[in-house]
Design a protein around this nucleic acid. Structure first.
Ligand code: ZN
Ligand code: ZN
Ligand code: ZN
Ligand code: ZN
Lengths: 150, 150
DNA sequence: AATCATCACGTAATAACGTAATAAAAAGCG
DNA sequence: CGCTTTTTATTACGTTATTACGTGATGATT
């Protein structure tokens, strides 16, 4: 099986999972929201909001930024998409929603390429540090810039 | 001694340390750069770039945004200031420059208040996760949103 | 001192990112 | 169906950050 077919299969898996998750939580994965999600899946990496505006627009219809931001907000609230604050961009969240794991997005400082890793060790260490800082709870997501190994 | 005097003393300490660090690394802490740094120190928390524009401007002279951004870039490169990407703001980095510690900025999701903690445990755990992600090096700064304990 | 290279700053314009306000359309529900 | 809530369209606006270009300061080299 070709890598392209593999990727296509992976795509469909993600779409199906998103669909299921929304169905189970009474969330509506409307056409626009699904198109945004699909575009992020297909891109294979972080994409800016205005890039999404361009990619999902055509001659007939030009989407407004606010349309994309609303869809992104929905997808983020649903836990399907992460915002990379350092990159002003948005990226698919994959992996099982493990409540005890920290979801770390490593971002290559040069290319913007991202790799997501889930770690209970980091979660535990951060929890300790948070206590020290007087924080009673912390987000299960974080973003760390670095240099990817060639 | 009053808390105000203590803070004033702390201020002067930070300024002196910044001055020393720049001198030792042949960096030029010019008047504008020092004014920006001092303003961040005095504010005691994160400040937006355009806030800094306002605070450092007066009737006689209105600073341009780019002037502030250049000073912030210098201070960030020198390791004196940290950008909070989730808040679009800038904050003093304090503590000793411990190469083995992760500098974690906990950001209260509600108020934007920050607390900085250095942790070698988090650094080590993140290093392991980075290896897993195929990253050979990571930034010693990270930002975690959370909820401050009242 | 004159030359040269580099860095810092001023000024203006613009790009990039994100939100508010309002009205229209669509979807859920009795 | 009529009523309510959610979603979307359109427009305008606000905020954050960068680009471009010129000028002056600085510091070393000849
Ligand atoms: Zn939301
Ligand atoms: Zn994830
Ligand atoms: Zn820089
Ligand atoms: Zn620090």
């Amino acid at each position: 099986m070709s890598t392209k077919a593999l990727r296509k299969e992976e795509e469909e898996n993600l779409l199906r999972r998103a669909d299921d998750l929304c169905r189970q939580n009474n969330l509506r994965l409307t056409p626009i929201r699904e198109r945004v999600y699909r575009e992020l899946v297909q891109s294979g990496g972080p994409v800016g909001a205005y890039d999404l505006v361009d990619r999902l627009s055509n001659e007939k219809k030009r989407l407004a930024p606010v349309t994309i931001y609303r869809a992104l907000d929905f997808l983020r609230d649903a836990g399907l998409v992460h915002r990379l604050a350092t990159q002003n961009s948005y990226v698919i969240s994959h992996g099982q929603p493990d409540m005890n794991a920290m979801k770390i997005m490593f971002v290559d400082a040069k290319t913007g390429e991202t790799v997501e890793v889930h770690s209970t060790e980091v979660a535990e260490a951060v929890r300790k540090a948070a206590e020290q800082a007087g924080f009673k709870s912390v987000s299960p997501f974080m973003e760390v810039e670095g240099e990817i190994a060639q």
